[in-house]
């Protein structure tokens, strides 16, 4: 990873929020480098700053100190090269599936004919062609998420930032969407930062799993997954997967006990 320049580089990012008269540290000196075409998952307990990290990369929040770079350039706002998929779908409820998917194409001034064609293409990609003219309220959770994915893809970003995209879905739908996402990713190899609180999901999807800890939010552990592995059902049921999952699981759920051993240079300050 050190040989290639990082596609995404988070350098010593700290983010504090004013909480009444005190300052609350949501992210404390977080550094992550993500290479082009890498699929990185971030897993950690709720409140450890996962969404804050994603919002900083999306350009929706600014770090209190430190820098976030995309393609070597400091992030100064949202940009078309970064597609964002939010935790709660965030579809515009007054627009149909097609109009939602066309939204980003309209704001970027894509002419109508091309807009139509591109929206059509991505709606088909996520299998929603039968619902192109349906309003979000008539869709199931999984369909809504697929629509959100098509909307993010439509402006052809080179980076996908996904914040617990499958968190609200049932297990079956979730597995289906994971596989669909991997299929698309193995074709186009966009750089993906995928946030989740689900250990299985984090391990199954990732080239690299970043485990975060809360209070203050920080990188706690990084687990590499063999790049040669084929992510299919066999992998999901394999002993290698189980071993990785156990490792990540312990990192996520037994953080206090292992802090001293893992944090190395950093000592865990009680908050």
């Amino acid at each position: 990873m050190t040989s290639k320049p990082a596609k995404i580089s988070v350098q010593g990012v700290t983010k504090t929020f004013a909480l009444g008269r005190e300052a609350f540290t949501a992210l404390d000196d977080v550094s992550i480098d993500i290479a082009d075409h890498e699929f990185v998952t971030v897993v950690g307990p709720s409140g450890c700053g996962k969404s804050t990290l994603m919002n900083i990369l999306a350009g929706l929040e600014t770090p209190t100190s430190g820098r976030a770079l995309v393609d070597g350039v400091p992030v100064s706002g949202p940009g078309p090269e970064r597609g964002v998929i939010f935790q709660q779908y965030a579809l515009f409820p007054w627009l149909t599936v097609r109009q939602n998917v066309e939204f980003g194409l309209r704001t970027t001034g894509v002419p109508k004919q091309e807009r139509r064609a591109r929206a059509e293409h991505f709606i088909e990609l996520v299998g929603l062609e039968a619902f192109a003219d349906a309003l979000p309220k008539t869709l199931s959770g999984g369909m809504r998420q697929r629509c959100a994915i098509a909307r993010a893809y439509s402006v052809d970003p080179s980076i996908l930032l996904m914040d617990e995209p499958f968190g609200a879905l049932d297990a079956l739908t979730r597995v289906k969407l994971q596989e669909q996402l991997l299929r698309t990713w193995s074709r186009d190899r966009r750089t993906v930062l995928f946030i989740t609180h689900d250990v299985d999901e984090a391990v199954f999807l990732a080239n690299r799993v970043v485990v975060m800890a809360a209070r203050p939010g920080r990188v706690y552990d990084v687990v590499e997954v063999d790049p040669a592995v084929v992510r299919d059902e066999a992998f999901r049921l394999s002993p290698e997967f189980a071993a990785l999952r156990n490792r990540v699981w312990r990192s996520v759920y037994h953080q206090e006990g292992r802090t001293a051993a893992l944090s190395g240079s950093r000592t865990d300050t009680p908050s």
Partner: peptide, 15 residues
Amino acid sequence: VDRTLINAARVLGAK
């Protein structure tokens, strides 16, 4: 108005 919807519009390039 839901902040997330405004954010969704912003990341899709809306000013």
